[in-house]
Structure formats: structure tokens, C-alpha cells
């Protein structure tokens, strides 16, 4: 099956007009598979880090959400050891009107505002709730260790 026009258009726009701090480049042999980098937002413990992610557009896209996963280790209450992300728009709040671009912006926003009340990594969430400065210090440490540019 040829690539839907929608994906072509999105890919084109990601290349020509990228969102600040975000890159998404399709693989040559699989144009539904994207190498993604997201810069840690300023003012967050992830600032200064450059995080690698993978993004895959399933056959049903855009009726089904893209699959997104962190490849860089990250200490965040909504991202688990395997890099899976707990983000509503990637699940039940998905709308076909959303795009790769908006998804990645939402992921970046999640780095600025972690939500320990809806945790995926329960131990990290607990840490964030009980000792915020301590937890943020570890997030910062991990950023320097694993996400250095």
C-alpha cells in the first residue's frame, strides 16, 4: 500500500518547518518509523538534555495513535524503565486531528510538568510526591549522565 497523503504531508512539514527543540526523521527503509529527538525544556530538571525517542505510525494511523517510546533513560514519574509514556492523547484521548508534531510537543510538555498522580513508574512517582527536590535532583543527574548532547 502506498503511503497515505497525510503521512507524506506531515513528514514534509516536520522537515521544512520543525517545531523548536524537536526533530523527527523517517527511516529510509521504513517511512512509518521515525527517529526523534526532544530537547529537555528550560527550567525543568531535564534542561540541557537531548532525549532520543522512537515513533511508529501503525497501519491504522491517523485513526489510531502513533506509538512513541523513549530510548534515552529518563527519571520521570510518567515514563517507565522501558521508555513507555503515560500520556492521555497517546491512548483514550487520541484524536485523528492530532499530528506527529502535536504529539511530540505534548511529550515535551510532559517533561516540564510531570504528573505523579497518574504514574507509570510508581517508585519514581512516589519519590516525586514525597521529596520533590530530591527526586528532581536525580532527574537532573540522569539527564547529565544519559542525555548529554
Amino acid at each position: 500500500m502506498s503511503l497515505p497523503k497525510r503521512i507524506l504531508k506531515e513528514t514534509e512539514r516536520l522537515r521544512n518547518d520543525p517545531a523548536p527543540g524537536i526533530t523527527a526523521v523517517p527511516h529510509e527503509d521504513n517511512v512509518r518509523y521515525f527517529d526523534v529527538t526532544v530537547e529537555g525544556p528550560d527550567g525543568s530538571p531535564f534542561a540541557g538534555g537531548n532525549f532520543h525517542l522512537e515513533l511508529f505510525l501503525p497501519e491504522e494511523y491517523p485513526m489510531a495513535p502513533p506509538k512513541v517510546r523513549f530510548l534515552t533513560k529518563i527519571y520521570h514519574p510518567n515514563i517507565d524503565k522501558l521508555g513507555r509514556i503515560c500520556l492521555d492523547i497517546l491512548k483514550d484521548k487520541w484524536s485523528p486531528a492530532l499530528q506527529i508534531r502535536t504529539v511530540l510537543l505534548s511529550v515535551q510538555a510532559l517533561l516540564s510538568s510531570p504528573n505523579p498522580d497518574d504514574p507509570l513508574a510508581t517508585d519514581v512517582a512516589k519519590h516525586y510526591k514525597e521529596d520533590l527536590p530530591g527526586a528532581q535532583a536525580i532527574s537532573k543527574e540522569w539527564t547529565e549522565k544519559f542525555a548529554a548532547k
Binding site: 491504522e60 485513526m63 489510531a64 492523547i89 484521548k93 484524536s95 485523528p96 486531528a97 492530532l98 502535536t102
Partner: peptide, 20 residues
């Protein structure tokens, strides 16, 4: 396509507008 996937894949009968 959207309504069909909501009904068939998600078993959802409460289908809302496609806009986010």
C-alpha cells in the same frame, strides 16, 4: 473510518467528534 474503528476496535458506542 473513525466511527467504525471506535465501534469495532474499541467497542465504544459513545463516539464523539474527531477534533481533539
Amino acid at each position: 473510518m473513525y466511527i467504525t474503528s471506535k465501534i469495532k476496535d474499541e467497542g465504544e458506542c459513545d463516539v464523539r467528534c474527531m477534533e481533539e
